[in-house]
Simulated scan of single mutants.
Amino acid sequence: MSRTSHVRLLPWCGADGQPAHLVTDGTESRLSRLADSIEATQLDTAREVLKLSRAMLQSLERPTVGELFYVTQRLTE
């Protein structure tokens, strides 16, 4: 009987800076729940950064180069 492996890219890097992966048989684990929680937080943060970025770009006042640099950094995180 063969078991199907599930490989998941985790939302953090390993100690050497390389991508971290979780290989499982598809069942939920403490580590997969932690990854789910971190990914949900990342998505919520990304939505907020996009919302604020859109507001800044649609403002009547033109953003400064520093503000654009800052928001670009946040968008790429």
Results as ranks from 00 to 15, higher is better:
M1P: 10
M1D: 14
M1L: 08
R3T: 10
T4D: 08
T4N: 13
T4P: 07
S5W: 04
S5N: 11
H6A: 14
V7N: 06
R8C: 08
R8G: 06
L9S: 14
L9G: 06
L9E: 15
L9V: 15
L10P: 01
P11Q: 00
P11C: 01
P11H: 02
C13K: 12
C13I: 07
G14A: 09
G14R: 04
A15R: 01
A15W: 01
D16I: 00
G17C: 09
G17W: 00
G17M: 00
Q18S: 11
P19N: 04
A20P: 00
H21D: 01
H21Y: 15
V23G: 01
V23I: 15
D25T: 11
D25S: 14
T27L: 09
T27V: 10
E28A: 12
S29Q: 00
S29L: 02
S29T: 15
L31M: 06
S32E: 05
R33C: 09
R33V: 13
R33M: 10
L34E: 08
L34F: 03
L34N: 01
A35S: 09
D36C: 06
D36G: 05
D36F: 07
S37H: 11
I38K: 02
I38R: 04
I38F: 03
E39D: 13
A40C: 01
A40N: 00
T41Y: 08
Q42P: 02
D44V: 05
D44F: 01
D44I: 05
T45M: 10
T45P: 03
T45Y: 12
A46M: 07
A46E: 11
A46N: 03
R47D: 12
R47L: 11
E48F: 09
E48P: 06
L50W: 09
L50I: 13
S53C: 07
R54K: 09
R54G: 04
R54E: 11
A55Y: 06
A55S: 13
A55I: 04
M56D: 04
L57R: 00
L57A: 03
Q58H: 05
L60Q: 07
L60I: 01
L60V: 04
E61C: 05
E61M: 03
E61W: 00
R62V: 14
P63L: 05
P63M: 02
T64Q: 05
T64M: 07
T64E: 13
V65H: 11
V65F: 13
G66C: 03
E67K: 12
L68M: 14
L68P: 04
Y70W: 13
Y70K: 15
Y70M: 14
Y70P: 08
Y70S: 15
V71L: 09
V71E: 10
V71W: 13
T72S: 10
Q73F: 00
Q73H: 06
R74C: 15
R74T: 12
R74D: 12
T76E: 14
T76W: 04
